[in-house]
Design a protein around this nucleic acid. Structure first.
Lengths: 339, 339
DNA sequence: AGTCCGTGCTCAAACGATTGACCAGATCCG
DNA sequence: CGGATCTGGTCAATCGTTTGAGCACGGACT
C-alpha cells in the first residue's frame, strides 16, 4: 500500500505538505497548483491513510465498540443500524462485539479499550446484574455508555421507554375487554423487567383491575423461557384470558407452546408482546406487538459515546421521542364471554 | 494506559527487555529474577500492548474481517461462532462487517484492507454475482476467501455441500411417498441456488420421478420470496404435494402464506427446508429441515484466510465432513391418497 | 535601506512496539 | 594468561502519520 512518502515523492513535495492537504488542515498554506499535484498523485497511487499510523500518532481510532448480548438476535438489528448510521455521519466506524456466555464479557471490553482498539463503547449487558469485573471498568474514566440498563455508580446510559411499552401493551388488552391479564416478564434482576413491570401494574391499576400475584411470571426473555411461562400461567385457576409478554422471543416460544397445548390464540387466549421484529410477523397467528424504538436507541447511544469521547460530558437519556407504537396483528381479540 | 516504557521504568530495565519478556521471545536471554520483576511490574500497571503501536511496527493486525450479507440473519449465527472459535485459537480477532444493500459492499472491504485494519477477510457476498468493484479486489493479492460462493478468477473459497443438502431434503419427501415435489429455489444467478438445484434434480432422477418444469421457482431467499413462491406453486395444476425450499427464511414465509391460504401443512402439503435455525423450530408446524454445517464453514473459512495470510497458500474447499443432517419435525408427512 | 509580514513550503520530533546490532563482564579453554 | 564464548542485558532504527517550529523569498511599509 502506498504511504504518504510515496505520494510526496511522486508529487515532488514533502510528506508534511501531503499530510496537510489530504487531511484538509485548515491552515495548510499550499498553492493551488501544488495541492492539485498532491491530490492527483494520491489518486493515482490509490493512497489510503494507514490506520495504525494515524491511530498511534493521534491516540484516536475513530472507532466505537457496540457490544450486545447476541448479535444475531433480531431485536438488535435496528439498534445496530441506528448505531452505524449515527457513527458514519460523524466519521466513526462501529466495531461489533458479542457479550455472550462464552467469555465473561468484561474481558472483551477491557481488551478493546485497553489495547486502544476503540475510543469508546456502547454496551448492552445481558439480562443480569453487572458482573464484578465490568463494574470496575465502568467506574474508570473509560467512555462507556450503557444501553437499556443503568448502574448506580455509572453515569452514562440510554434506555428505551420500557414502562410506556408495557403500559401500551396492557392497555390494548384492557380495551379489548380483558381483565384476567397476566404478565410473562424477564428475570427479577433485569433492569428492563423492572421498568416494564411498572407499566403493566400502572395500566391495571388505572383501569381498576386487580389480578392475582401469580399472574406475573419472571422467567426470562428466551424462547424456552416463554414456553415455561405459558405452562405456569395456564396451570392457574382462573386462567388468564390475555398475556402480556415482555419480550418478543419469549412470546414466540409461548405462542408455539400454546399451539402445542391446544390453546387457541386468540380465541382462548390473547397474546401481546413488547418488542417487534420480523419473527413476530411470521408466527401463527402473527403477533400483536408494541414496537420499541431500537433504531433511535442505537443512534442516541453512539451520539452519547462520541460526545463523551470528545467533550467528556455524560448523560442518562430515555428515548421517548418516537413513542412505543402498537402494531395490531392477529394474536389478540376480545375475550370470550364464557364466565 | 501504561506503555512498555512505564513498565521498564518500574522494573528498572530497558524497554527492549520488557518487550522481549512480555512477548515471549524465544531468545529473550533474561535472568529469572529480572523476568519476574518485569512480569510483576506489568501486572501492577495493568499493561496491555497498544494495538496501533504493534500493528504499525509489525504490519500485522491479527484481525480477520468477516463480512456477511446480514449479520442478524439467524443463519449466520453458527458461522460467526465457528469463525470466532477458530480465530481465537490462532490468536486472531474477528471483525464483523455487513455487506448489505446500503453501501456497494466493495467499498467496505477496500477500506478494511487498504487502511490496514484487517490482515485478511472471509467474505460472503449476497445472492448475486460479484459487483464489478469487488472483482478488482479479488484479483489483487489481498488475502480474501469467499464463503458459499466462488469466482472464476479467484482461488480461495469455502462452501457448504449444497448439492447434498438439497438431495437429502428431496429424498426425504420421496421416501414419504411424494412424487409431485416442487422446489422453491433462490435467484438463478446465485451460486448456492445452482448447486442446490443439482441435488434436487439428481434425487428425482435417481428415483425415476419426473415433474413439470414449472415446479421449480427461482424467486429468492427472503421471507417475502417464500410467500411469492407459494402462490406460484399452488396455482399450478396438478398442485405439488411437497415443496423443498432452498432457504429457511423463505420457508418461514412460505409456511405462513400457506396458513393464510388455508392450505394445511403437512396434511395438504409437506414442506422441507435446506438450512436449520431456531426460527425453524418455532414456526407452526415446526419445520422439517436439513441442517447445514455453518459452524464448520466458519472455522474452515477463517483457517483458510489465516493460512493465506501466513503462507500465501490458497485453496477451494467444500465442507463435507459433518454431512448435512436431516432434522425431522412436523411439516412433512406422507401425501394423502386422493389421486 | 532596513524591518516586518505573509506565503509556501520543509524539518524533525513525537506516538508505542519490535528487533538486529552491540557491549560489558564473567567464564572457560588450551 | 590471552583470546574465545556465553550471559544478560542496552541502543537505536524503524513502521506511517501528525504537527509545532522554522526557513527562504518576495513585497509592503517606514
Amino acid at each position: 500500500m502506498a504511504t504518504l512518502g510515496d505520494v510526496a515523492a511522486r508529487a515532488g513535495v514533502s510528506i508534511s505538505a501531503v499530510s496537510r492537504v489530504l487531511s484538509d488542515a485548515p491552515d495548510s498554506r499550499v498553492s493551488a497548483a501544488t495541492r492539485q499535484r498532491i491530490v492527483d498523485a494520491a489518486r493515482e497511487l490509490q493512497y489510503r491513510p494507514n490506520f495504525a499510523g494515524r491511530a498511534l500518532k493521534s491516540a484516536r481510532t475513530q472507532v466505537v465498540g457496540l457490544v450486545v448480548p447476541d448479535i444475531t438476535n433480531a431485536l438488535f438489528t435496528e439498534l445496530m443500524h441506528g448505531a452505524e448510521d449515527e457513527a458514519t455521519e460523524r466519521g466513526y466506524t462501529v466495531l461489533l462485539g458479542r457479550s455472550d456466555d462464552v467469555r465473561p464479557g468484561g474481558e472483551v471490553i477491557a481488551r478493546l479499550i485497553g489495547e486502544g482498539r476503540v475510543d469508546g463503547m456502547a454496551l448492552q449487558v445481558g439480562d443480569a446484574v453487572l458482573p464484578a469485573g465490568l463494574r470496575d471498568l465502568l467506574t474508570t474514566q473509560a467512555p462507556i455508555v450503557l444501553v437499556n440498563s443503568s448502574s448506580p455508580d455509572h453515569v452514562g446510559s440510554v434506555t428505551l421507554d420500557d414502562h410506556r411499552g408495557a403500559l401500551i401493551a396492557t392497555q390494548h388488552l384492557l380495551e379489548l375487554g380483558h381483565e384476567r391479564i397476566a404478565f410473562a416478564n424477564g428475570l427479577p434482576r433485569s433492569f428492563t423487567a423492572k421498568r416494564r413491570r411498572t407499566g403493566y401494574k400502572l395500566a391495571l391499576e388505572t383501569a381498576g383491575v386487580r389480578v392475582p400475584k401469580e399472574y406475573e411470571t419472571r422467567v426470562g426473555y428466551t424462547v424456552d423461557n416463554g414456553r415455561t411461562a405459558l405452562h405456569r400461567l395456564m396451570a392457574l385457576d382462573p386462567r388468564p384470558t390475555g398475556i402480556v409478554v415482555a419480550n418478543v422471543n419469549a412470546a414466540v416460544g409461548l405462542l408455539g407452546e400454546a399451539r402445542r397445548a391446544g390453546i387457541r390464540v386468540p380465541d382462548d387466549l390473547s397474546v401481546v408482546t413488547v418488542h417487534d421484529s420480523w419473527t413476530a410477523e411470521n408466527t401463527w397467528p402473527p403477533l400483536t406487538a408494541v414496537k420499541m424504538q431500537f433504531y433511535t436507541v442505537g443512534r442516541t447511544a453512539v451520539r452519547s459515546v462520541i460526545r463523551r469521547i470528545e467533550t467528556g460530558e455524560t448523560s442518562d437519556e430515555v428515548v421517548t421521542d418516537p413513542p412505543p407504537e402498537l402494531v395490531v396483528r392477529e394474536s389478540t381479540a376480545a375475550p370470550r364471554r364464557t364466565s
